[in-house]
Write a protein that binds this DNA or RNA. Sequence first.
RNA 1: GCGCUGUUAGCUCAGUUGGUUCAGAGCAUUACCUUGACAGGGUAGGGGUCACUGGUUCGAAUCCAGUACAGCGCACCA
Length: 873
Amino acid sequence: MELAKTYDPKLVEGRWYQHWMEQGFFRSVPDEREPFTIVIPPPNVTGVLHMGHMLNNTIQDVLIRKARMEGKNACWVPGTDHASIATESKVVGMLREKGIKKSDISRDEFLKHAFEWKDKYGGIILEQLRRLGASCDWERTRFTMEDKLSKAVIKVFVDLYRKGYLYRDLKMINWDPKARTTLSNEEVVYKEKRSKLYHVRYQVEGSQDEWLTIATTRPETILGDTAVCVNPKDPRYTHLQGKKVLVPLIGRSIPVIFDEYVDMEFGTGALKVTPAHDINDYELGKKHNLETIDMMNDDGTISPAGQLYVGEDRFTARKRIIEEIETAGQLVKVEEIDNKVGYSERNPDTVVEPRLSLQWFVDMQPLAGPALENVLNDEIQFHPAQFKNLYKHWLENIRNWPISRQLWWGQQIPAWYLEDGSFFVAETAEEALELARKATKDDSLSLSALRQDEDVVDTWFSSWLWPISVFDGFENKEELNYYYPTNVLVTGWDIIFFWVARMIMAGYEYTGEKPFKHVYFTGMVRDKEGRKMSKSLGNSPDAMELLDTYGADGVRVGMLIAAPKGNDLLFDVKLCEQGRNFSNKVWNALRLIKGWESYEDKNTDNEAAIAWLESRLNQVIQDIDAHFAAFRLSDALMAVYSFIWDDFCSWYLEMIKPEYQQPIDSHTLARTIELFEKGLQLMHPFMPFITEEIWNQLRERDSKDCIIVSRWPQAGQVDAALLQQAEAAKEVISKVREVRNQKGLKQKEPLQLYAVVKDKNRYATFSAMIQKLAFLGEFSFVDAEVDGTQTFLVGTDQFFLKTGDTIDPEQEKARLLQERDYLLGFIRSVQGKLSNEKFVSSAPAAVVDSERKKLSDGEAKVKAIEESLAKLN
RNA sequence: GCGCUGUUAGCUCAGUUGGUUCAGAGCAUUACCUUGACAGGGUAGGGGUCACUGGUUCGAAUCCAGUACAGCGCACCA
């Protein structure tokens, strides 16, 4: 069959993926082999594949494929995350389009809609991952909100509650008024903003015209003011001791209090205090027994407690209140300042409000200990390791985790309340009822007396259990014992707190063991200018389109070749082009080899070439294994890339290539196929499809004899002397080509080369190669300089190339003089070192020897050049 | 404000304990080549005072201190 001139991934990828599936190559069940386990960072169930996923999952696939080839029981567990805030807001939006308001339907109805939505759109991303070549065990696909996983969440909630690690408390939390839910500190993103600082004067109660001016960036909260605070050391305000002031517009009388907390330098030195809407104000309020007025509704509108602008949005209210204050003559001035404003991570345009709220919290202190210790002591290794710093800092300053979310899409909090507000935490309503009966000593209590907490838990409160729960580890230890701890987690460093740290905590708490041995952090995928990929910038390529255009292998190479671990990837489609070009290069190596007719012969002139490539291969295997061990995937890819392109294609195939349309001896062909196969195996983790295709093109194979399950090549002997000889030969060839280039000679016009060398053996093995690749009519050793030739040096060996051209003596002289001057300078610096007694006495002998060798080599070279110069004169 | 990390070729990055040609790779770029596996190609080049200053050392891209710039994290922000 004739092979196409260019490689077409479309004809290959789908076919092989299906074949792998049919053969069950991705399937893993526990057996006696060593396991190698990766759990996927579950993408949002309604998500679609983007560049970040491609990078992340390519890395996981590379690792899992390598492990599979090493004979390990490779298990990559896929799945999706219910992503409560993100998904719920998508569903709310979808319902709104249908004219349904969330507030008009019941929880059950809403969940019905949500599950319908999930069944329709959920899992698209998993299908897309198949296109990328992800070799997940799809039979293990899990979902964070499926029954078993939800049960685990409830179990853990109850357990932590009973241990006293989980409690309910009224605290200042971050509130997302769009999603109408609590957020943890980590879910608040602070952005530097240019804001207005309003200076507003409050009249001192009982005075005619005495005023106290405060400064605020959130004037709408004036409606919730219950004090004004000044520093007791501030001489400007000492006279206000015991005085009261009137809140503008509403005229509420509030005390002037004194606290060192206030910075005298900032604004006017007077701070309005709104205990319900600011964390610091709340602390002041507690300390000074202030009233707390919650003047905002959960959607960010003003509540009746605010008295004015009730029902208006907070930002509209801000505008209007300032206008009215100005009209009242109480706006002193407006100043521009830079401050940081917190936005919701999930709703990036929504400003987060500090809000006083009754929520469930996890006490992180007891969980943090083992999590910190085992990362610092490298029981769990971070790659790159510098993320340990970030991790350490966060854990050492850890704050309690508010886990309740005022949403419906998620695991409902297993707490049941009685009329009087007392509550009972249990895995089921029945158990809660039993607890309630015991507590109240009232056996007549029925389920209808209990009301379950309306809230659900934070998504991360389910995903922190992921490495355990995907193996059903909370009900059955069998699979857990085999697959856990998992080998490596591949994830972005941006969720180091959200997810990585918490999985480590849950791991130690619930299994007494780490959840993974290694964490490979990927950076963010940015465009080539370093900007974040975003819809509004339109700089985010369509992932599926890339796969179509460049093939999965091309895209995978493109992503990995420029993705050093932990660093952001500056993505450019040109990288995928490079990947595709590489595919094509390998494909054409196949075409060449397949195109050869062979004749039976056990003797060959190519023995040296074969032995050389084999040594190179063994060297490359060693390099690649070392790169993998250190998670240097880009380097591993680069090593195989240059082995295939440079060593195999550019040198080896050219060395053994027969004359045009001539056959090749069978021995060389067989050995070439073997070596090519090994190269393909090294490529396979990175480029699964094309390697499988070529693997099967090279020989007739059984349907089970696939490269994906072939054994990873073992590094054999490296013949260092041979490699050196080859390098010398390559240098001679390059030098000849250089001369041709300079002289404008044809590549294939036969020339004569003569050499004066110290050791003929150095060139003996490859002399035929030199002759062939440098296109020489003659290559021979001589005893003395040959006249009328172009000269060059390889090491200290002299070469004389007869170009047929007449040599311009002046030009040649100039060239030689330049080279000599360079060498003389070099020699001077080496001599300088060697004449320094301190160097000779304190440097290691090997270093001194090498300097001496440099000197003698340099001198020999100069001597050779001077001989040539003498001839020219 | 506190802390972490970085600064090496036009771009993205290697450079392991200071010492063998250590100043590298890929991409980009330049010249030449093109019926011969591959123009999605071949061959050969050009390109860097290793951010700056000082120190340690026989010897510094590498170690130390300081400076500048950049990125990130945390805290504060009326």
